[in-house]
């Protein structure tokens, strides 16, 4: 792929803290390499801001290899930017052309309040997981790998759901700010496995109750979540979550 450099016009959301109203600031960045990642481009801008004595842009990032789920930028109207199945850290500047204007916003949802600039508080997801996204068993000694048979198809579907890195792009893209794709991935990955079945009913009821409590919206099956998911979690999981919830909700006596 041909290497090129570009000059860009950035419009970035700046917000001092939770209370601040926030606004967009415009920055010109020049001589950006097409080989840079999007976050490296922001790093270059931040170096300059620090040299100039102004406040660098705060943003979340950790592994920078697309597996931790920390990066969370809403770039030109799409969570994680224009590429499909990609996190912001894996988005590279060759996705853009010289002279482009790029608008960078934080995830927008009341359940994800802005901490500073592009950083949002996603601890609501942690609380949803804490409410039931686990299995509680005394593991004892490690058992033989083949003592619990699992169908290959179910194992694959479970693994595909477990790919969810909890970045929150689904919430950011959903018109209802619903966390259903996230919750459905977490519920599905355990519901499909024999290890998850003892707590299957209470898990789905508790996790959904927590999701509602955190102030996420409900699902209207538009499919925007699936389209932006960096791990390409299927919307089929949401239908599974619905089925799990309805059957548990109509039968559980708790």
């Amino acid at each position: 792929m041909e290497h090129y450099t570009m000059n860009l016009n950035l419009q970035v959301w700046r917000q001092k803290n939770k209370q601040d109203k926030g606004h967009f600031d415009t920055y010109q960045v020049s001589n950006i390499s097409s080989e840079m990642s999007f976050l490296e481009m922001i790093d270059v801008l931040n170096e300059r801001l620090i040299r100039e004595g102004s406040d660098p842009i705060a943003f979340d990032h950790d592994c920078r290899e697309g597996i931790c789920g920390m990066c969370s930028m809403y770039i030109n109207g799409k969570p994680h930017g224009p590429w499909e199945g990609t996190t912001t850290c894996q988005l590279h500047m060759r996705a853009f052309r010289d002279g482009d204007t790029i608008v960078v916003e934080p995830w927008r949802a009341k359940a994800f309040p802005v901490i500073k600039d592009l950083m949002v508080d996603r601890s609501a997801f942690d609380r949803i997981i804490q409410s039931g996204g686990y299995i509680s068993v005394n593991t004892g000694n490690a058992v033989d790998g083949n003592s619990i048979p699992v169908e290959k198809e179910k194992a694959d579907a479970s693994f595909a759901a477990a790919m969810c890195i909890g970045c929150g792009a689904c919430v950011a893209a959903c018109k209802n700010s619903s966390a259903m794709l996230f919750v459905s991935a977490k519920v599905s990955h355990l519901a499909l496995l024999p290890q998850g079945s003892p707590e299957r009913k209470t898990r789905v009821l508790d996790m959904m109750a927590q999701m509602d409590k955190e102030g996420f919206g409900s699902c209207t099956n538009t499919g925007a979540c699936e389209a932006v998911c960096p791990k390409e979690i299927s919307i089929t999981n949401i239908a599974r979550l619905n089925a799990e919830y309805i059957s548990a909700g109509l039968t559980e006596d708790k």
Binding site: Q11, G22, F24, Y74, N76, G77, K78, P79, V103, E105, R108, A109, K110, A111, A173, K175, N176, S177, S178, G215, F216, G217, S218, T220, N221, T222, G223, A224, E226, A227, V228
Partner: peptide, 23 residues
């Protein structure tokens, strides 16, 4: 559902990820 967003986006995802009528 409309009340869950808070501040709206400057650039919308629009029809790129879902059909207009589904929204």
């Amino acid at each position: 559902n409309r009340s869950k967003r808070g501040i709206s986006y400057k650039v919308n995802y629009g029809n790129r990820g879902s059909k207009w009528y589904s929204r």
